[in-house]
Design a protein around this nucleic acid. Structure first.
Lengths: 141, 141
DNA sequence: CTGTATCCTGCTAGATACTG
DNA sequence: CAGTATCTAGCAGGATACAG
């Protein structure tokens, strides 16, 4: 039998183990998608109907709103309440868990607003620099 | 000439204007991608070399690490310092702006760790329910 | 060691049309 | 009003090979 190829003992990460990383990535894929945060933010003020959400979030398509809401519902962050009236009326609201997300997200939003200018300045500067010069002379990035 | 089709006066959003949304989305696309947060987190303890980052972040490919670092550099969140030694040695570090991002991100990470269990429970519950029943009888979701 | 250049795949998300 | 069903384009991201 050939000896087992020694599975990489895995040096522990300096900033935490592998476990937390997975959790963070997991959350980030939910929260980091194009619309989830905006939906959660919209619901922060209280329950809203489907069409109100759609109107409130400029640019979202019906499809994406549905998908986003399903995802959030699945994760236990929002509830869906359907009133059997005609025409149908469905309300979405944050769960307690969903509310706890509101805080970190607003932190991030605050950062975004504060840093927006700085970031755009940095981008402008960076985008002007790239000097891939002619083969003559030492290329210096 | 045909009259301009009246550009939709746009009702103002209840949770803020359209402006902030753009900023938030902008940040989210940077922060919400698969690796940026982990890179920033890794650099939180201090500067690191390329290969150290690669080793520290389990599962990232060379390509994505490079791309992520370029993006962060462009946005003024990290600096790249190249020592003209042989072999080449490049160190990445957070800028002051980058450090300010560390805080909100860690908030979110904390939330992720705390809520992980609850979310997975919710998912399990949700994934069991879907009852697309036989065509006989009133389908009730 | 630190990248860049290709190739290739799957998913994300938009547009549109149709149903209860 | 509230959703589902399709179709499709674009791009994020992985593997690999090569270069300074």
């Amino acid at each position: 039998m050939s000896p087992p190829p020694a599975k990489r003992p895995r040096s522990k990460n300096p900033h935490g183990a592998t476990e937390p990383c997975l959790a963070v990535r997991d959350v980030l894929t939910r929260v980091g998608d194009k619309w989830s945060v905006l939906v959660v933010g919209s619901l922060g003020d209280g329950p809203l109907r489907f069409s109100d959400l759609k109107r409130g979030i400029e640019g979202i398509s019906q499809r994406m709103l549905t998908l986003t809401l399903r995802g959030l519902e699945r994760d236990g962050l929002v509830t869906r309440t359907q009133y059997p009236t005609v025409p149908p009326r469905v309300e979405y609201a944050l769960t307690p868990l969903g509310h706890t997300l509101l805080d970190p997200v607003q932190e991030l939003a605050k950062w975004a607003l504060q840093s927006r200018a700085a970031i755009q300045t940095a981008r402008g500067r960076y985008d002007k620099k790239p000097k891939p010069p002619p083969p003559t002379g030492p290329t210096r990035r």
